[in-house]
């Protein structure tokens, strides 16, 4: 069983839940940016939740199936077609051998997740099939898919088509998108006024937004507390002695445009970070298009953990409904 890529889309890559354990060598976790949608797509087709699927951003691929399969597409809202006939998102549907899966124009969100019963069966690198192009790991030769690729799919116990996730369990960002932030890390470098302004302002997603990080613009520039820069840090007040970066951490080079590091994050560098997006909201970033308005919302650890539990409960509810 294989998926023949007829058209690759804009940037379509094999992803699973990632490659933990190598961040100390600069190899990031990678994996689906919207893990909620990836897990759900896998559940719909009866795969293990950490099976590999395809992540496509802004534009869907065109895929010919060599054998019958059950498929589900979750995440962004984008018309889905099998041989030109529309099928629904967040639901399982059958694709027969020789049929083609294709997509229309993106309506909302940014990334779709395509799960195929049996899961994508490319060779794992360091324990994961996730594509990390900078390090040439995972996926097909460590790169996004290209026209002509034949992507192997594993064996499966077929599940029924027509399984669906209820609308209220399809977690997507609102507008403006609210991203919850736990202040910390080098928060103390900011003046009180800058700290307040960061949460008051409405930001928009900049064009430089990818799997490594999302850049935001439009808010007021941040002012730093005066200090003599420490030895080895560099002259700019936003510089620190190069340290590790947290996933979701927010760096603001020069104090102007915040960058949130995501699944393909660089593991360290010399910019101060003011805190991090809470783990529960990392999925939502993967669904933001450029120019989307965004508010950063300040939370404490208790609220961060409550949000994490809410997300887990939502996934559990989907799991129970689909079993």
């Amino acid at each position: 069983m294989a998926l023949k890529i007829v058209k690759p889309g804009l940037f379509t890559s094999v992803q699973d839940l990632g490659r933990p354990g190598y961040f100390h060598l600069g190899i990031p976790i990678s994996g689906a940016m919207d893990r909620f949608a990836m897990r759900t797509a896998n559940m719909l087709v009866g795969n293990a939740e950490d099976a590999a699927g395809l992540e496509a951003v802004f534009m869907g691929p065109e895929i010919e199936f060599t054998e019958d399969a059950v498929v589900a597409v979750t995440g962004a809202s984008m018309p889905i077609m099998v041989d030109g006939d529309p099928v629904g998102g967040w639901s399982s549907f059958a694709v027969k051998a020789g049929q083609t899966l294709s997509f229309g124009f993106l309506k909302s969100g940014a990334r779709i997740y395509i799960a195929v019963s049996g899961g994508i069966d490319t060779t794992p690198d360091l324990g994961s099939r996730s594509t990390y192009p900078i390090g040439a790991l995972g996926g097909i030769e460590g790169r996004p898919v290209q026209a002509g690729d034949e992507i192997p799919v594993g064996n499966s116990n077929p599940v029924a088509a027509g399984r669906t996730v209820q609308t209220e369990l399809r977690r997507m960002p609102g507008s403006p998108a609210e991203l919850r932030v736990l202040p910390g890390l080098y928060w103390h470098r900011l003046t009180e006024e800058a700290g307040t302004g960061f949460f008051e302002d409405t930001w928009t997603v900049a064009p430089e937004a990818d799997r490594m990080g999302y850049r935001f613009k439009g808010g007021r520039a941040l002012e730093f507390v005066d200090r003599e820069q420490p030895f080895g840090a560099g002259a700019d007040p936003s510089n620190i002695v190069d340290g590790c970066y947290s996933y979701g951490s927010i760096q603001v080079p020069g104090g102007t445009e915040p960058i949130v590091l995501h699944r393909d994050a660089v593991s360290g560098g010399g910019y101060f970070t003011l805190g991090a997006i809470i783990s529960a909201d990392m999925d939502l970033i993967g669904q933001l298009q450029p120019n989307t308005p965004v508010r950063f919302v300040k939370v404490d650890m208790e609220r961060a953990l409550a949000a994490r539990a809410d997300r887990r409960k939502m996934l559990q509810k989907i799991r129970e409904e689909l079993v």
Binding site: P230, F231, G275, S279, M301
Partner: peptide, 18 residues
């Protein structure tokens, strides 16, 4: 010692390099 979100703990030994 500080938190980096709810999944990281970041420990800075010193502000300057040595």
């Amino acid at each position: 010692y500080t938190f980096g979100g709810d999944e990281h703990i970041y420990v800075e030994m010193d502000e300057e390099m040595s």
